[in-house]
């Protein structure tokens, strides 16, 4: 009787532990999916480097999902983090492109309104560092 009760207790503890791990992974999955959707929604794909990071994010997301299904919870969580960081970077690159374009337009408007204003030299945008390709899944 005691051994049966102990076995039941151990099963419950193990189940709760598994549930806790699954919940964390689900949260990562949801937040990563939201980041990827947000990046796509603001047009990350129209900016070349942003499109690349968005692609990385999707691939990493799929990889994380597979790891999660395989029970590699820690590796899956880290892969979700990678996917999320790539998605956020993709969205930020699109916003930077928009902001630079808006600044260029504002400069043109300012120069048109004040023809005597000498146009300040426009520093060419620094070439973005080539994104590191996603490393193979770390298990």
């Amino acid at each position: 009787m005691r051994s049966a009760a102990f076995a039941l207790f151990a099963t419950v503890v193990a189940t709760l532990g598994a549930c806790a791990g699954t919940q964390t992974t689900s949260q990562h999955l949801a937040s990563t999916q939201a980041s990827i959707s947000a990046a796509a929604a603001i047009g990350a794909a129209r900016e070349p480097t942003g499109a690349l990071h968005l692609q990385y994010a999707r691939e990493e997301y799929a990889q994380a999902d597979n790891l999660s299904r395989d029970g590699e919870i820690e590796a899956a969580d880290r892969m979700f983090l990678r996917a999320q960081s790539d998605a956020e970077l993709a969205g930020a690159l699109a916003r930077r492109q928009d902001a630079r374009r808006a600044a260029d337009e504002a400069r043109a408007r300012a120069e048109a309104a004040q023809p005597s204003m000498a146009p300040a030299p426009v520093a060419p945008p620094a070439p973005p560092a080539p994104p590191a390709p996603p490393a193979p899944a770390a298990r």
Partner: peptide
């Protein structure tokens, strides 16, 4: 450990971000 590479990757992206 593989954790080093993953965390470094995330750090790289956040620095770029």
């Amino acid at each position: 450990s593989p954790e080093v590479r993953d965390l470094s990757y995330v750090a790289l992206r956040r620095a770029e971000l």
